[in-house]
């Protein structure tokens, strides 16, 4: 029983040492360079520690900045933190780049426009960018008329929500330095105004249609026998409207 206890102690005692289960007698390479001992052989062999106690190994060099300091404040990023932590950011890329025309929220891989592909397969570069000569411009002589339907559809700019209207207008101002000779483009470019105008027009059209319907109904009611009863029942057309 007693022997077992001793064996247990022997078995576990080295493990409780900070150096693990290794015996201090066994010579080994000391990684820290702090454990220096002198082994004396002879009649009375002994081990004399000749260096400092191993717990006294040099502490790691003090660094100027540690995780104990508020790194956000140290690097002056508190403003950025409060900016991003407070508000809920919109998920779409278009909310970050509201001035960019076209569909930009779609994944780049779908139309081969990803930035990753630019890194993986860099475009041919290193050549001088020179203005096009008149003969080169001949290649851009176009036929009059609208684009075929399939191209028009893919190139169509997305219908922006009301929220972006203001930003779109701002964008127009940013690119507003259009020369006066380009009135046609400016006119075409002012699609937001056109849309607005169309909307107004549609609204007016609706009003007129409703007026006409009302007048028709009034005429019908005048001629119908139920007119005098004033039952007030909705006609199918009224119901649908």
């Amino acid at each position: 029983m007693m022997g077992d206890q001793f064996r247990k102690v022997e078995q576990y005692s080295p493990k409780s040492s900070p150096r693990g289960a290794r015996s201090p007698v066994v010579s080994r390479q000391d990684s820290s360079g702090t454990l220096k001992t002198t082994i004396l052989l002879g009649k009375n062999p002994s081990i004399v520690p000749s260096g400092p106690f191993y717990l006294l190994k040099e502490p790691p060099g003090e660094s100027e900045i540690t995780g104990a300091t508020n790194l956000m404040a140290y690097y002056g990023l508190e403003h950025s933190y409060s900016k991003f932590s407070g508000k809920k950011l919109k998920e779409q890329l278009s909310s970050f780049l509201p001035t960019l025309p076209g569909v930009i929220d779609a994944p780049g891989q779908s139309d081969n426009s990803s930035l990753r592909s630019v890194i993986e397969k860099p475009p041919v570069g290193g050549k001088d960018l020179l203005p096009l000569t008149s003969s080169q411009l001949e290649g851009f002589r176009l036929h009059p008329g609208p684009l075929p339907e399939q191209y028009r559809y893919t190139n169509a700019t997305p219908i922006k929500k009301h929220k972006n209207k203001h930003k779109k207008h701002k964008h127009k101002e940013a690119g507003g330095g259009l020369p006066s000779t380009e009135a046609a483009i400016a006119e075409a470019g002012g699609d937001t105004h056109e849309k607005k105008h169309k909307k107004q027009k549609r609204h007016e059209d609706d009003k007129e249609r409703k007026k006409r319907k009302k007048e028709k109904k009034r005429k019908k009611q005048k001629h119908s026998p139920e007119h005098s009863t004033g039952a007030g029942g909705l006609t199918p057309s009224q119901h649908s409207s």
Binding site: F84, S85, E91, Q92, F96, D105, Q109, L115, R116
Partner: peptide, 19 residues
């Protein structure tokens, strides 16, 4: 770039990093 390629707001990346 991955965020942008996926049509996501890159500020979300900044926010994640800061957090």
């Amino acid at each position: 770039f991955d965020y942008i390629d996926q049509g996501r707001n890159p500020q979300l990346y900044t926010k994640d990093c800061i957090e």
